[in-house]
Amino acid sequence: MCRWLAYAGEPLQPSLVILDAQHSLVAQALDSPLGAETVNGDGFGFGWYPVGSTEGSIPSIYHSVEPAWNDENLREITDAVESPLFFSHVRAAAGPPIQRTNCHPYRYLNWLFMHNGVIHGFHEMKRDLTFAVDPELYPHILGTTDSEVLFHLALTFGLQGDPVGGMTRAVQFVEETGRKHGIDYPMQGTIALADGATIWAFRYSSEGKSRTLFHSVDIPTLHEMYPDVPRLKLFGQRARVVVSEPLNNLPGAFLEVPESSVAILGSEGYSYEPFMSSAVRA
Protein backbone atom coordinates (compact mmCIF):
# COMPACT_ATOMS: atom_id res chain seq x y z
CA MET A 1 0.00 0.00 0.00
CA CYS A 2 2.49 2.64 1.18
CA ARG A 3 5.69 3.08 3.21
CA TRP A 4 6.35 5.62 5.94
CA LEU A 5 8.96 6.90 8.37
CA ALA A 6 8.74 8.87 11.62
CA TYR A 7 11.74 10.38 13.41
CA ALA A 8 12.17 11.91 16.88
CA GLY A 9 15.32 13.02 18.66
CA GLU A 10 17.95 15.70 18.30
CA PRO A 11 17.32 18.06 15.38
CA LEU A 12 18.86 16.79 12.15
CA GLN A 13 18.53 17.15 8.41
CA PRO A 14 15.67 14.81 7.41
CA SER A 15 17.52 13.87 4.21
CA LEU A 16 19.85 11.70 6.33
CA VAL A 17 17.12 9.09 6.72
CA ILE A 18 14.57 9.95 4.03
CA LEU A 19 17.10 10.00 1.17
CA ASP A 20 20.57 8.95 2.27
CA ALA A 21 20.11 5.81 4.37
CA GLN A 22 21.10 2.46 2.87
CA HIS A 23 17.43 1.49 2.51
CA SER A 24 15.93 4.96 2.74
CA LEU A 25 12.28 5.81 2.37
CA VAL A 26 12.92 7.00 -1.18
CA ALA A 27 14.70 3.72 -1.92
CA GLN A 28 11.64 1.89 -0.55
CA ALA A 29 9.47 3.94 -2.93
CA LEU A 30 11.37 2.32 -5.78
CA ASP A 31 11.81 -1.14 -4.26
CA SER A 32 9.91 -2.27 -1.17
CA PRO A 33 10.75 -5.92 -0.39
CA LEU A 34 8.38 -6.09 2.60
CA GLY A 35 5.52 -4.03 1.18
CA ALA A 36 2.23 -5.10 -0.37
CA GLU A 37 3.45 -3.33 -3.53
CA THR A 38 7.04 -3.21 -4.72
CA VAL A 39 6.81 0.37 -6.05
CA ASN A 40 5.27 3.30 -4.15
CA GLY A 41 5.33 6.09 -6.72
CA ASP A 42 1.90 7.74 -6.45
CA GLY A 43 3.03 10.85 -4.62
CA PHE A 44 4.59 11.51 -1.25
CA GLY A 45 4.54 13.84 1.70
CA PHE A 46 6.86 15.32 4.31
CA GLY A 47 5.72 16.93 7.56
CA TRP A 48 8.07 18.48 10.13
CA TYR A 49 8.01 20.32 13.42
CA PRO A 50 10.34 23.28 14.07
CA VAL A 51 13.47 23.15 16.19
CA GLY A 52 12.42 23.61 19.82
CA SER A 53 8.96 22.16 19.19
CA THR A 54 6.89 20.94 22.10
CA GLU A 55 3.42 19.50 22.46
CA GLY A 56 1.19 21.93 20.62
CA SER A 57 3.74 23.15 18.05
CA ILE A 58 2.36 23.54 14.53
CA PRO A 59 4.09 21.45 11.85
CA SER A 60 4.78 22.37 8.24
CA ILE A 61 3.88 20.02 5.39
CA TYR A 62 4.93 19.47 1.79
CA HIS A 63 3.00 17.21 -0.61
CA SER A 64 3.66 16.27 -4.21
CA VAL A 65 2.09 13.89 -6.72
CA GLU A 66 5.53 13.28 -8.22
CA PRO A 67 7.26 10.01 -7.34
CA ALA A 68 9.52 10.73 -4.37
CA TRP A 69 12.62 9.73 -6.32
CA ASN A 70 11.81 12.26 -9.04
CA ASP A 71 11.13 15.38 -6.96
CA GLU A 72 14.07 17.80 -6.65
CA ASN A 73 12.24 19.88 -4.04
CA LEU A 74 12.26 16.97 -1.60
CA ARG A 75 16.06 17.00 -1.57
CA GLU A 76 16.14 20.80 -1.33
CA ILE A 77 13.76 20.94 1.64
CA THR A 78 15.13 17.99 3.59
CA ASP A 79 18.69 19.32 3.19
CA ALA A 80 17.72 22.88 4.13
CA VAL A 81 15.71 22.30 7.32
CA GLU A 82 16.52 20.68 10.63
CA SER A 83 13.78 19.11 12.72
CA PRO A 84 13.50 17.17 15.99
CA LEU A 85 10.35 15.35 14.85
CA PHE A 86 9.22 14.65 11.31
CA PHE A 87 7.08 12.30 9.21
CA SER A 88 7.48 11.19 5.62
CA HIS A 89 5.26 8.92 3.50
CA VAL A 90 5.41 7.44 0.00
CA ARG A 91 2.10 6.39 -1.52
CA ALA A 92 0.87 3.47 -3.58
CA ALA A 93 -2.68 4.46 -4.49
CA ALA A 94 -5.29 1.79 -3.77
CA GLY A 95 -8.20 3.42 -5.58
CA PRO A 96 -8.50 7.10 -4.60
CA PRO A 97 -6.98 9.34 -7.29
CA ILE A 98 -3.42 10.62 -7.37
CA GLN A 99 -3.76 14.19 -6.13
CA ARG A 100 -2.02 16.32 -3.51
CA THR A 101 -4.95 16.26 -1.09
CA ASN A 102 -4.66 12.47 -0.98
CA CYS A 103 -0.98 12.51 0.03
CA HIS A 104 0.03 11.85 3.64
CA PRO A 105 0.80 13.04 6.25
CA TYR A 106 -2.42 14.81 7.13
CA ARG A 107 -2.40 17.77 9.52
CA TYR A 108 -4.93 19.18 11.96
CA LEU A 109 -3.67 21.97 14.23
CA ASN A 110 -0.58 20.50 15.94
CA TRP A 111 -1.31 16.91 14.91
CA LEU A 112 0.26 14.87 12.11
CA PHE A 113 -1.20 11.55 10.92
CA MET A 114 -0.22 8.98 8.29
CA HIS A 115 -1.38 5.47 7.47
CA ASN A 116 -0.17 2.46 5.52
CA GLY A 117 -3.04 0.12 4.81
CA VAL A 118 -6.69 0.18 3.86
CA ILE A 119 -10.24 0.18 5.16
CA HIS A 120 -11.68 -2.74 3.23
CA GLY A 121 -15.15 -1.98 1.92
CA PHE A 122 -14.63 1.75 2.31
CA HIS A 123 -16.93 2.60 -0.59
CA GLU A 124 -19.77 0.64 1.03
CA MET A 125 -19.12 2.27 4.42
CA LYS A 126 -18.09 5.75 3.29
CA ARG A 127 -21.41 7.47 3.96
CA ASP A 128 -21.72 5.99 7.45
CA LEU A 129 -18.11 6.79 8.34
CA THR A 130 -18.03 10.35 7.05
CA PHE A 131 -21.40 11.22 8.57
CA ALA A 132 -20.00 10.19 11.96
CA VAL A 133 -17.28 12.88 11.74
CA ASP A 134 -17.92 15.93 13.94
CA PRO A 135 -19.58 18.62 11.77
CA GLU A 136 -16.92 21.12 12.85
CA LEU A 137 -14.18 18.77 11.61
CA TYR A 138 -15.88 17.66 8.40
CA PRO A 139 -14.79 20.71 6.32
CA HIS A 140 -11.17 19.82 7.03
CA ILE A 141 -11.46 16.60 4.98
CA LEU A 142 -9.98 17.80 1.71
CA GLY A 143 -9.21 14.53 -0.10
CA THR A 144 -10.95 11.26 -0.87
CA THR A 145 -8.95 8.62 1.04
CA ASP A 146 -10.13 6.25 3.74
CA SER A 147 -7.06 7.29 5.76
CA GLU A 148 -8.13 10.92 6.02
CA VAL A 149 -11.61 9.88 7.14
CA LEU A 150 -10.08 7.60 9.77
CA PHE A 151 -7.98 10.49 11.10
CA HIS A 152 -11.02 12.73 11.44
CA LEU A 153 -13.01 9.95 13.09
CA ALA A 154 -10.22 9.62 15.67
CA LEU A 155 -10.32 13.39 16.22
CA THR A 156 -14.09 13.13 16.62
CA PHE A 157 -13.71 10.35 19.19
CA GLY A 158 -11.30 12.28 21.41
CA LEU A 159 -7.83 11.80 19.94
CA GLN A 160 -6.58 15.21 21.10
CA GLY A 161 -7.18 14.42 24.77
CA ASP A 162 -6.50 10.67 24.60
CA PRO A 163 -4.60 9.58 21.46
CA VAL A 164 -4.74 5.83 22.11
CA GLY A 165 -8.36 5.94 23.28
CA GLY A 166 -9.45 8.13 20.37
CA MET A 167 -7.80 5.85 17.84
CA THR A 168 -9.25 2.79 19.57
CA ARG A 169 -12.78 4.17 19.39
CA ALA A 170 -12.31 5.15 15.74
CA VAL A 171 -11.12 1.66 14.73
CA GLN A 172 -13.89 0.05 16.76
CA PHE A 173 -16.41 2.21 14.91
CA VAL A 174 -14.90 1.17 11.56
CA GLU A 175 -15.14 -2.51 12.52
CA GLU A 176 -18.72 -2.19 13.82
CA THR A 177 -19.74 -0.38 10.64
CA GLY A 178 -17.96 -2.98 8.53
CA ARG A 179 -19.86 -5.82 10.18
CA LYS A 180 -23.15 -4.06 9.42
CA HIS A 181 -22.14 -4.09 5.76
CA GLY A 182 -21.03 -7.72 5.78
CA ILE A 183 -17.29 -6.93 5.77
CA ASP A 184 -15.45 -9.36 8.03
CA TYR A 185 -12.02 -7.72 8.21
CA PRO A 186 -12.40 -3.99 7.52
CA MET A 187 -9.29 -2.57 9.17
CA GLN A 188 -5.71 -3.05 7.99
CA GLY A 189 -2.59 -1.07 8.56
CA THR A 190 -0.01 0.82 10.52
CA ILE A 191 -0.60 4.37 11.72
CA ALA A 192 1.70 7.16 12.90
CA LEU A 193 0.44 10.06 14.99
CA ALA A 194 2.30 12.99 16.58
CA ASP A 195 1.45 16.10 18.59
CA GLY A 196 4.80 17.91 18.40
CA ALA A 197 6.48 16.06 21.27
CA THR A 198 5.38 12.41 21.15
CA ILE A 199 4.92 9.81 18.40
CA TRP A 200 2.32 7.04 18.63
CA ALA A 201 2.89 4.17 16.17
CA PHE A 202 -0.02 1.71 15.86
CA ARG A 203 0.07 -1.73 14.25
CA TYR A 204 -3.28 -3.45 13.85
CA SER A 205 -5.54 -5.32 11.45
CA SER A 206 -8.92 -6.94 11.96
CA GLU A 207 -7.56 -10.34 10.94
CA GLY A 208 -4.31 -10.06 12.90
CA LYS A 209 -2.06 -9.86 9.82
CA SER A 210 -0.89 -6.28 9.82
CA ARG A 211 1.52 -4.46 7.55
CA THR A 212 5.14 -4.49 8.72
CA LEU A 213 6.40 -1.95 11.27
CA PHE A 214 9.78 -1.59 12.99
CA HIS A 215 11.59 0.82 15.25
CA SER A 216 15.29 1.45 15.69
CA VAL A 217 17.32 0.40 18.70
CA ASP A 218 18.65 3.33 20.76
CA ILE A 219 21.86 4.94 19.53
CA PRO A 220 24.04 4.09 22.58
CA THR A 221 23.22 0.40 22.07
CA LEU A 222 23.94 0.68 18.35
CA HIS A 223 27.33 2.27 19.11
CA GLU A 224 28.15 -0.71 21.32
CA MET A 225 26.97 -3.16 18.68
CA TYR A 226 28.66 -1.42 15.74
CA PRO A 227 31.50 0.82 16.97
CA ASP A 228 33.10 0.93 13.52
CA VAL A 229 30.08 2.15 11.53
CA PRO A 230 30.82 5.84 10.91
CA ARG A 231 27.29 6.74 9.81
CA LEU A 232 25.93 6.10 13.32
CA LYS A 233 28.02 9.02 14.60
CA LEU A 234 25.78 11.39 12.62
CA PHE A 235 22.92 10.82 15.07
CA GLY A 236 22.38 12.14 18.58
CA GLN A 237 21.88 9.95 21.63
CA ARG A 238 18.08 10.32 21.51
CA ALA A 239 17.64 9.71 17.76
CA ARG A 240 15.06 7.06 16.95
CA VAL A 241 12.93 6.15 13.94
CA VAL A 242 9.76 4.14 13.39
CA VAL A 243 9.61 2.74 9.88
CA SER A 244 7.64 0.42 7.63
CA GLU A 245 10.90 -1.34 6.77
CA PRO A 246 14.40 -1.24 8.33
CA LEU A 247 16.68 1.46 6.92
CA ASN A 248 19.78 -0.75 6.87
CA ASN A 249 20.90 -4.37 6.97
CA LEU A 250 22.63 -4.25 10.38
CA PRO A 251 21.36 -7.26 12.38
CA GLY A 252 19.56 -6.18 15.53
CA ALA A 253 19.40 -2.49 14.60
CA PHE A 254 15.61 -2.60 14.15
CA LEU A 255 12.97 -4.37 16.21
CA GLU A 256 9.52 -5.34 14.97
CA VAL A 257 6.58 -3.59 16.62
CA PRO A 258 4.28 -6.34 17.98
CA GLU A 259 0.94 -7.05 16.37
CA SER A 260 -2.06 -5.26 17.96
CA SER A 261 0.06 -2.76 19.86
CA VAL A 262 1.05 0.88 19.94
CA ALA A 263 4.68 1.93 20.36
CA ILE A 264 4.85 5.31 22.10
CA LEU A 265 8.03 7.32 21.51
CA GLY A 266 8.50 10.13 24.01
CA SER A 267 11.43 11.92 25.61
CA GLU A 268 12.37 8.80 27.62
CA GLY A 269 12.31 6.43 24.65
CA TYR A 270 9.82 3.72 23.72
CA SER A 271 6.98 2.19 25.67
CA TYR A 272 4.32 -0.25 24.49
CA GLU A 273 0.60 -0.58 25.09
CA PRO A 274 -1.87 -3.15 23.73
CA PHE A 275 -4.10 -1.82 20.99
CA MET A 276 -7.50 -3.31 20.21
CA SER A 277 -6.67 -6.38 22.29
CA SER A 278 -9.47 -8.27 24.05
CA ALA A 279 -8.73 -6.26 27.18
CA VAL A 280 -9.08 -2.96 25.28
CA ARG A 281 -12.23 -4.07 23.47
CA ALA A 282 -13.88 -5.01 26.77
Rank of each mutant, 00 (worst) to 15 (best):
A6V: 14
A8N: 09
E10M: 13
E10S: 15
E10Q: 15
P14K: 06
L16V: 02
V17P: 03
S24R: 09
L25W: 02
P33C: 05
L34I: 01
G35H: 10
V39T: 14
D42F: 10
G47L: 04
P50E: 03
T54W: 00
G56T: 00
I58E: 02
I61H: 02
I61T: 14
H63W: 02
E72N: 08
D79S: 07
D79I: 00
F87I: 00
F87H: 00
S88F: 00
H89K: 12
V90G: 12
A92D: 05
A94M: 12
G95K: 05
P97R: 14
I98V: 15
I98M: 09
P105T: 01
Y106T: 04
R107H: 10
L109S: 07
L109V: 01
N110F: 03
W111L: 15
L112M: 15
F113Q: 05
M125N: 11
L129C: 13
F131P: 01
V133E: 09
V133A: 11
L137G: 05
Y138P: 06
H140K: 10
S147N: 04
E148M: 06
V149I: 14
A154I: 08
F157H: 04
G158V: 04
L159G: 09
G161E: 14
G161M: 06
M167A: 10
V171Q: 10
Q172N: 04
G178D: 06
G182M: 00
Y185F: 04
M187D: 02
M187N: 05
T190Y: 08
T190W: 06
A192M: 07
A194F: 00
R203K: 15
Y204E: 02
S206Q: 06
E207Y: 13
R211Q: 13
F214H: 10
V217T: 14
I219R: 15
T221N: 05
E224N: 14
L232M: 12
F235S: 10
G236M: 08
Q237D: 12
R238L: 03
V243Q: 07
N248C: 15
N248G: 06
N249I: 04
N249Q: 13
L250D: 05
A253I: 10
F254K: 03
F254R: 07
E256V: 13
E256P: 08
E256N: 12
E259A: 03
V262W: 07
I264W: 02
L265T: 06
G266H: 02
S267H: 11
P274C: 06
P274R: 06
S277L: 13
